[in-house]
Computed example of a mutant assay.
Amino acid sequence: MNTAQLNRMHSGKGFIAALDQSGGSTPKALSQYGVEESTYTNDEEMYTLVHEMRTRIIKSPSFDSEYILGAILFENTMDRKIDGQWTADYLWEKKNIVPFLKVDKGLADLVNGVQLMKPISNLDELLTRAVERNVFGTKMRSVIKEANAEGIRQVVEQQFEVGLQIFAKGLVPIIEPEVDIYSSDKQKSEEILKEEIKKQLSLLGKDVKVMLKLSIPTVNDFYTDLISDPHVVRVVALSGGYAQKEANDKLAQNHGLIASFSRALSEGLFANQSDDEFNTKLGKTIKEIYQASIT
């Protein structure tokens, strides 16, 4: 584990940029960027185009470590290069931004009001490659749609079980049990979720470190006790489908919680923009997310 990166993630000012759309979400991300499916004919062409989009974001002068602490990458992005360097190396060595890797393989079907992670069949090999690529940590997502105590318990137990496997490889896991922002009992789900997370944190060895990525809570400052837990490097928030301004407004009401936005970060960025237009829009977005993250 890189101590400088750990210290930066624990106490630095800023937020995490989520650049990890993958699989089925890649066409949507490209479409929102102005690149339609008719532009490419296979997955390789699609991933080349999305890497070009991410490269443009990362290389932008607006994508600056003054505001951004870390960036989450998709596996295909980790295995590609920017200006002759592996993406993770470019992020840290050129930008002083901590690299993370999305490791989950998508969601299982809805059972007990939740969607667990699908089995990650090649996890050990993927983690080994992540270490070789100088990645600091990982991210994995589950979804909670109903306040079902049994389902939420299963989500959290699965997340921490895989998280311990990741930590054993020398990486810091971002545990992400997302509560659907459109859930009719979102607040109740958050209450159950927090208790299950606290239970799992209490079982960790004293040197184990994790991060948490959670939906912005219904009750402001609801996760303050998780933010201060000695096992937790940082608690970050996903935008969860909120538009950029609403996500920022809600985040700013939660002290110590920082952003890890994806859709809200790339909103308003288009392939046909000039570099000046692109960098200006990205810079404005980054500064607004940063301001919401330092409350």
Rank of each mutant, 00 (worst) to 15 (best):
Q165R: 15
Y223Q: 02
K188M: 09
V172S: 00
D221W: 06
I197L: 15
I120F: 06
K199D: 13
S202E: 14
L212Q: 02
V179P: 09
R129I: 13
G137W: 01
Q159R: 05
T224N: 05
Q165A: 10
S183P: 09
K118V: 08
F160W: 08
V210D: 02
L226Q: 07
M117W: 04
D180A: 15
I197V: 15
V219H: 02
E132D: 14
K118D: 08
K139F: 00
Q154Y: 12
P177V: 12
L193V: 13
K169N: 10
V208H: 01
N220P: 07
R133N: 14
I120Q: 07
L204I: 07
E150F: 14
K198C: 12
V179R: 11
K194Q: 14
V155H: 06
K118Q: 13
L226F: 08
P217M: 10
I175D: 03
I120N: 04
M211V: 00
E125M: 15
S142C: 15
A147R: 01
V155I: 13
L214Q: 05
A149S: 15
K194A: 09
I166W: 00
V219A: 08
L127F: 12
I181E: 10
V143P: 01
E178R: 07
I181G: 09
A168V: 07
D225I: 09
I152R: 07
L212I: 05
D225V: 09
M211F: 00
F167K: 02
S142Y: 06
K199I: 14
L123S: 03
A130Y: 04
F136M: 05
I192P: 06
